[in-house]
Design a protein around this nucleic acid. Structure first.
Lengths: 140, 140
DNA sequence: GCCCATCATTTGCAACTGCAAGTGTCTGCG
DNA sequence: CGCAGACACTTGCAGTTGCAAATGATGGGC
């Protein structure tokens, strides 16, 4: 139970700090950053909405609205799929790529400072393994 | 970095499941449950708003509104402090205590099923220790 | 070729949150 | 005493989120 409380508090505190830093330095929420990051890693730097839903922490509707915002901000474009008119790709724009590359060091530094650097190798491995066991895919 | 991703995903998935179960079985959000639990553990089963803010994951305004809701639902009462008129206690009502006692087994079972039981003793200890290191108190 | 179940995504809506500003209270210093 | 500044909490407001329903599209069975 102590482990559970530590998980709640630790996670919460870390997330708030990361979020605040990213917001202050680049005007990006953590959710937005993660979407940009996922998209940038995909082939052609574009990803279907449904794939984004799977790898993000958002429900489909939440993702739709976040992408709306990213489109408004010019970081992403919606591209209809030629083969299947139901699907929409979120595609990184030039500006989106620049923004992501600018934010990346901030984020990496934050994750290190607030999490990874506080653990030794053994803790890192155990956390990765233990937390990995919680992740049977969620029904949003 | 793998550890970090596992943390995000694992935590998110677990929380969604706990939240859904608690909601379905007792109509309580996880945040509400945690507030009730903290209050119930305090002397006289009442706690100052500011102390609740400290131990919960909520901002002061968020907490005010959550307590509003708990008061509406009859689970908690606001009690002004005689010694300092600025201070308000959230005090558990009889009904609040019953509700909490009803929800407790569900929650405990959930935490076990979705987290603790998936770890061996060593993982539990390491998670508690490692996550505990992330928790320098957050500026909400 | 037509329909129906299914799928990918979006929208209406209501709930939850945090920030900044507001209210009322206390406290210490002149 | 009286008041400036700190404190405990609440409110106005705007942004984010999820659920359920709507929209538009596909594809298999007949």
């Amino acid at each position: 139970m102590a482990a559970w409380h530590a998980l709640i508090r630790g996670h919460g505190g870390m997330m708030r700090k990361l979020e605040a830093e990213l917001q202050a330095a680049h005007g990006l929420s953590l959710a937005a950053y993660e979407v940009l990051a996922h998209v940038s890693e995909a082939p052609d730097r574009r990803l279907r909405m449904s794939d984004l839903t799977t790898c993000s922490q958002l429900s489909p509707s939440g993702l739709t609205r976040l992408v709306d915002k990213l489109v408004r901000d010019g970081l992403v474009e919606r591209v209809r799929c030629a083969a299947d008119a139901r699907v929409v790709y979120a595609a990184l724009t030039e500006r989106g790529l620049e923004q992501l590359e600018a934010a990346y060091p901030t984020h990496l530094r934050g994750v290190r400072a607030h999490a990874i650097d506080r653990w030794d190798r053994d803790e890192r491995d155990t956390v990765a393994c233990a937390l990995g066991k919680l992740a049977d895919l969620p029904p949003h």
